[in-house]
């Protein structure tokens, strides 16, 4: 099952990248570098956002456990923090999609 999922995901990624590789008259090294940069960028963003969300959630859990009456206010603040952090990850996803599929610098 895991192997099948891995193969399917690989196929999707390769099919997605194939259109870029064939459509643009750009050196393959450039495309490789863009793909690597995108992967690193998204990875770093996911790492930072995951760390931030985890810390926020940890603090919220501790706060709620210490003072259950304040759980309403804590939930609101947690929601705001999560929304802020998640928007950063979404921006990175947009940049990654632009770099991969709608890159203005490679025509």
């Amino acid at each position: 099952m895991r192997k099948l999922l891995f193969t399917a995901l690989n196929t999707v990624v390769l099919m997605g990248l194939a259109s870029v590789a064939f459509a643009a008259a750009v050196a393959p090294e450039t495309i490789s570098m863009i793909a690597i940069a995108t992967a690193f960028g998204m990875g770093i963003a996911a790492f930072g956002c995951g760390l931030g969300q985890g810390l926020g959630l940890k603090a919220a859990c501790e706060g709620t456990a210490r003072n259950p009456e304040a759980s309403g206010k804590i939930t609101v603040i947690l929601l705001l923090g999560m929304a802020f952090i998640e928007s950063l990850a979404i921006y990175t996803l947009v940049i990654a999609l632009i770099l991969l599929f709608a890159n203005p610098l490679i025509g």
């Binding site: 979404i90 996803l93 947009v94 632009i98 709608a102």
Partner: peptide, 12 residues
């Protein structure tokens, strides 16, 4: 987002 940017071609 993929659909909007790639297929839709919306201004980013």
């Amino acid at each position: 987002l993929f659909g909007l940017i790639i297929w839709g071609g919306f201004p980013v």
